[in-house]
Amino acid sequence: MQTDELKKKYILQKILGYGQYGTVYRGVNLRTKETVAIKELRHSNADQGINVQALREIEILKSVKCEQIVALKDLACGQNKTYLIMEYMEEDLLTALRRDTFSEQQVKLIMFQVLQGLAYLHKQGIVHRDIKPNNILYRNLEIKICDLGMAQNLNKQKPQTTRIQNHSYRAPEVFLGQKYCSKVDVWSAGVLFIQLLFKSNPFKGPSEVASFNQILKFCGTPVEENWLGVTSLKNYSTLITEDPKERTLHTLLEKKMPPLLVNLIDSMLILDPSQRITAQQALLHPYFHGMNIERCLNKIQASRKKIKTESQTQTEVFNYPNGNKIIVVSQISQKSKNCF
């Protein structure tokens, strides 16, 4: 689809967010009235067409079909721009986290879905490489993993870059320069688990070195006894200059978590990736025993129907960024409470 066709099929309503490579809009399909997210990716002349990151994201989104991964609905290409039309959710997990305090049971449901999405990607040989709250879409405890521009298919045997993951969610093997695998996503998910429960990221720091030092503080210093071959990694002598520290992660976690959850997160945040559990193993952990995602989400849907809603007619003006087209839309908006 060309961009001219895009403008006939969709209306861009408002900007949802900005990224390094483009802008995300909320839009509406004029025929079906479905609300969608439209990601506008810009390309420089040096790209000679669609840039590598955009191509990678399109290729991966077209190849996956999973309830926990955002779905690609349409695609439009034009001069220096590509548009990805995807399913829409109201906000990301970072926005929800800033507003709400989640109970342990709510976090359990959210993280089970995150791990389901990761287990699916990893089974396809795909590593997301940028799991963080603002790359997880959220609606009433349902989630969709999004923003796969950093993702890589390990089956293609391409060179690995170490410039992956926000440093507050970055796995220790990436810091130290070891060849990595899908378990970098498990590390990020373990950090996210803690953040949802404590409303803070224990590894957050103003710089990469500061974040790595936080890993040493809570997870201990990697040495040959707990990570065979670690001292020979290329960044080891640069990043580890002080006496070894003991692992104190349990002390942090036990303040707010039951023993099974402490054990699960501890297993997700093991320094040596060869000993760290996989996403699939995390789903099978005793902490999640008896977890039925469909039953939980059906309960959410049923709860929504019982909640009284307040409706009102609302008129807004929507237009394309270049100002070429303005349309006034009247719609019904509803206010409802969280189901829990």
Rank of each mutant, 00 (worst) to 15 (best):
V223C: 00
V223E: 02
I50Q: 04
L261R: 07
G125P: 13
L176C: 02
I215T: 01
E294G: 06
I15T: 15
Q48Y: 03
R56W: 03
E67R: 07
T82N: 05
I60Y: 04
L109Q: 06
L228M: 13
L84W: 03
L228A: 11
M150A: 15
P172G: 03
K183E: 01
L121F: 10
L12R: 02
I38R: 02
A282E: 02
A76Q: 02
R295P: 06
Q275R: 12
L118I: 15
Q53L: 14
A96L: 12
I307R: 13
L61P: 05
T309Q: 14
L41F: 13
K308G: 15
R163P: 00
T238M: 12
E246R: 09
A151G: 05
C181N: 10
G177Q: 09
D130N: 14
K245F: 01
K299C: 05
E5G: 14
S63A: 15
K62D: 00
F212Y: 12
L141Q: 03
R170G: 00
A76H: 15
T248Y: 03
Y169R: 04
H250V: 15
F198N: 10
K204Q: 12
I277T: 09
L197C: 15
A189S: 14
Q13D: 12
V174K: 06
A151V: 09
H289S: 15
A282C: 11
G19V: 06
C219L: 15
N226K: 03
L233Y: 05
E67L: 14
P244N: 02
C339Y: 09
C77K: 07
M111S: 03
R129E: 02
K8C: 09
Q214T: 06
A279W: 00
D4V: 13
P258S: 14
Q152P: 05
Q48G: 08
F212N: 04
E67H: 13
Y287W: 11
E40V: 12
H128C: 10
G125H: 09
A119H: 01
A189Y: 00
L260M: 07
H167E: 11
